[in-house]
Write a protein that binds this DNA or RNA. Structure first.
Lengths: 232, 232
DNA sequence: TTCTTATTGTCTCACATTATAACAATATTC
DNA sequence: GAATATTGTTATAATGTGAGACAATAAGAA
């Protein structure tokens, strides 16, 4: 006998999301830790039969971050036969005293659609899902071992993010509305994991004609105040 | 009562494939026409429960083209709620006198994983699938109206192909093993849909250090014979 | 007030890359 | 052997980028 959830979701299909944030210095991602199992995983979920894939992912990201209308990019679907791990799923469910019979469908083979999200780190208060104890920011250079193929998903997300860095939407979604040239450069450096030349970077950004210059930012520091910029 | 197929495949999930070929002049794709319906569609299919996504797509492309180990790139998963069209599917099945009861699962909502393939146009003899009358090459600039969201899938495939054109694998899979610089340029021009400067193109290709120069090709024309190249 | 300090905005110069044009090389035909 | 069409290479100008220098300036110190 299978439970109600079996009718609610599309079987054998899930989504996972690498949620990137920038704390002003380093690039981070959100990772869940499941109750009493020592298992870490990406935020993710299932797609209801009467909702679009994008709706499902949007809703999932909103539940973890509280943010609506987040920048989302779907980058790859992972469909290896043995990518999922029924034993791990079972222990996660057992640790929460779930009825395994009702959750039998979760132990089947799953194909997952990988997404990444870019969010403004500032006013986010991440919330764990109903199977996990905690959700926390991890430095992208210090991601723990994750369940199943989730490390591979993170690596691919970062690769795609690096390839798309020239799009203004990337920076726009990791920074506040107004930012200094230095902050923008720090975002690029965090994503690319390399230091950039200040003068070349500034010249390039200005020549792209995507920035609007605003008033100066007086930080109370003993040096010339930088201009604030926003994306056009 | 549902038929055997319902147990064989992952429900609600399919793949579609934009199969690109280059006839020496123009970029083309393979399109199926279903029996007695006037409906056109991309080659595609379903994923068996005990095979990987990639295996399924490889097998599907092999069935249509006879070619094994084709270059395949998975570029996007399409998950809108109403992207599929049960009425169209029904009429395709009816035109082939299929038992609709047994094929009920095919009328459900489907999420599809979009791929594109690059194949050497020369020695391919495309074969229609068991629901279609014909499979034929269509100029990429002259694609007919397709079922469901398949035109959108084609557009996206072309966009991704253009973005990936600098990878040597692109040209390698659309040309014979040995080719002239002019042929290579024609592939680029067909994909990008713009004319390129001969000298710049040649210098760029040679500087990338991906080509090996072989003997000259004597075509019996009244001008200097071009060198043949292959990818390293 | 004036000087110092740290950082920013801009400029310069050298160098690399690319666009554009010109020219030389060469299979074949006449 | 000259004419023709196309290819391979070189020359020159325009553009883009790396590296450094320098001037501007907000705040603190003298």
């Amino acid at each position: 006998m299978k439970g109600a959830n079996n009718k609610k979701f599309i079987p054998n299909l899930s989504y996972d999301c690498v949620i990137f944030g920038f704390n002003g210095e380093k690039l981070k991602i959100l990772i869940l830790e499941y109750h009493n199992t020592g298992l870490f995983a990406l935020p993710g979920g299932y797609i209801k039969k009467e909702e679009s894939l994008q709706e499902a992912v949007n809703k999932g990201v909103e539940e973890r971050t509280g943010l609506k209308d987040v920048f989302l990019d779907q980058f790859q679907t992972f469909g290896k036969l043995n990518r999922t791990d029924p034993d791990a799923t079972r222990s996660i469910l057992q640790a929460k005293n779930k009825d395994l019979n009702e959750k039998q469908w979760m132990m089947e083979r799953f194909i997952t659609v990988g997404h990444y999200a870019l969010i403004n780190y500032e006013n986010v208060n991440p919330k764990p899902d109903n199977l996990s104890d905690s959700i926390a920011w991890y430095d992208i250079k210090n991601v723990p071992q994750l369940m199943m193929d989730h490390n591979e998903i993170v690596d691919k997300a970062l690769e795609v993010l690096r390839n798309n860095i020239s799009e203004k939407l990337i920076g726009m979604n990791l920074l506040p509305a107004k930012f200094t040239m230095k902050q923008l450069q720090q975002v690029f450096e965090a994503i690319l994991d390399e230091t950039l030349r200040r003068t070349s970077f500034q010249r390039k950004m200005l020549s792209m004609d995507i920035l609007e210059r605003h008033e100066k930012l007086f930080e109370g520091k003993a040096h010339k105040a930088p201009y604030l910029y926003s994306f056009k």
